[in-house]
Design a protein around this nucleic acid. Structure first.
Lengths: 124, 124
DNA sequence: CTGAATCCTAATTGATACTG
DNA sequence: CAGTATCAATTAGGATTCAG
């Protein structure tokens, strides 16, 4: 068999899908994917949108996303340089799920903050 | 205002929700959350299920998930020790979304592998 | 058995400077 | 503008060791 039962394979560290989890279910990967759902962005625009990401990590993250077929990179041969990043059809599918997760987090922040405070005070 | 428009706040590095993204949308965090959707697991069972995680990272990840109210830790005072980890109602909600993402990844692996190969050969 | 604590090495990350 | 190169700092990982 090429893949194990649904979902189970990501739990095998030798399965290629595990590497994909590392790309998508990562701090910067998820934020970049979510940002592009609103439309094409340039490198600098992404850098400003994803507040706090370094140039190095943005470049690295975009390369990983491009390699996995989630993001399309389009270079306009002009001076000064102009490079556009867009979600591929595949990327749009993940991005929607990532956005769903972000929306859930946003909506659940009150409960989460309460839990954090309870946890922190219980060991002070 | 306490929060910005939906989703947008995770893009502000000073918003508390950003920290939660780091916990959930992370390699180990997502895998542990997904694993617990099938039911309560003990430390050692989790260690075996999430193939490749070190004891250190598992302990660290479980603490972060517990602090954010997503996982409940139950210690049975017996010898030998017995500690159960279970998703809280809040945790079940995220876990379902994480599982959805994993299932999507699993189902999209053929396309993703094709993209990887195209990318790799195009610069060899 | 479940973890916390420690020590040490390897890998990531981030800030900065620099180039086409 | 869009990155790459470099180096310093942070973090992850593994291998014990130890306590409850």
């Amino acid at each position: 068999m090429q893949f194990m039962a649904a979902t189970a394979n990501v739990y095998n560290r030798n399965c290629p899908s595990r590497e994909v989890v590392g790309v998508i279910a990562s701090h910067w990967g998820s934020l970049v994917l979510g940002a592009l759902l609103d439309g094409t962005l340039r490198f600098g625009e992404l850098r400003r949108t994803v507040n706090g990401i370094s140039e190095k990590m943005l470049a690295q993250t975009l390369q990983a996303l491009e390699r996995n077929g989630l993001v399309h990179r389009e270079v306009h041969p002009v001076i000064p340089p102009h490079v556009d990043y867009t979600l591929t059809p595949l990327g749009v599918q993940v991005s929607r799920q990532v956005r769903g997760l972000f929306d859930w987090i946003t909506g659940s922040m009150p409960e989460i903050l309460t839990a954090q405070q309870a946890y922190d005070t219980s060991r002070a």
